[in-house]
């Protein structure tokens, strides 16, 4: 249920995001999921790739400040109310979510959701014991 994510610090400078994509392209790394949190001066790029170790290595070599974070990944059915069920479960157990994003390419009937929480072990157990389907990518 735990998914490794790479967070990349990006100062808002022209071409920075393109440089990032170029580096992964040249290392033949596939981006599976990607989300940018931004302010006026900075962005944080959160990515999931098919080879996080290699991605970390090449990004560092090219002067990007990066860090690895473990998230919780789970699947929800692609229909109304499914997301609410899981979020209600977390909320009822007083789990705070720092951030959340969805991850595509599961096909048409399911979505993968990634969340950052404080206690991954607790949340994994909570979700599994409530029959939430884990999403394991890496």
């Amino acid at each position: 249920m735990k998914v490794k994510q790479i967070a990349v610090f990006l100062e808002n400078r022209k071409g920075r995001l393109c440089d990032f994509a170029k580096i992964l392209h040249e290392a033949n790394i596939n981006i599976k999921g990607m989300y940018i949190a931004d302010t006026t001066d900075y962005g944080i790029l959160r990515v999931i790739t098919n080879d996080n170790d290699k991605a970390m290595k090449v990004l560092k070599e090219n002067g990007f400040n990066t860090t690895v974070t473990e998230l919780i990944g789970f699947k929800v059915a692609d229909k109304p109310g499914e997301m609410h069920k899981v979020l209600k479960l977390l909320n009822d157990s007083n789990v705070d979510i720092s951030y959340l994003y969805s991850y595509s390419e599961l096909g048409s009937n399911q979505a993968a959701i990634l969340i950052k929480v404080e206690d991954n072990d607790f949340v994994s157990k909570l979700l599994l014991s409530n029959n939430v389907e884990p999403f394991i990518e890496n």
């Binding site: 610090f9 949190a37 944080i44 560092k60 990007f64 400040n65 974070t69 720092s98 951030y99």
Partner: peptide
């Protein structure tokens, strides 16, 4: 400059 190896996955940590 950030120190090498340092990055953040949350905006509030940078702030």
């Amino acid at each position: 400059e950030l120190a090498p190896e340092i990055a953040f996955d949350e905006i509030q940590l940078i702030q």
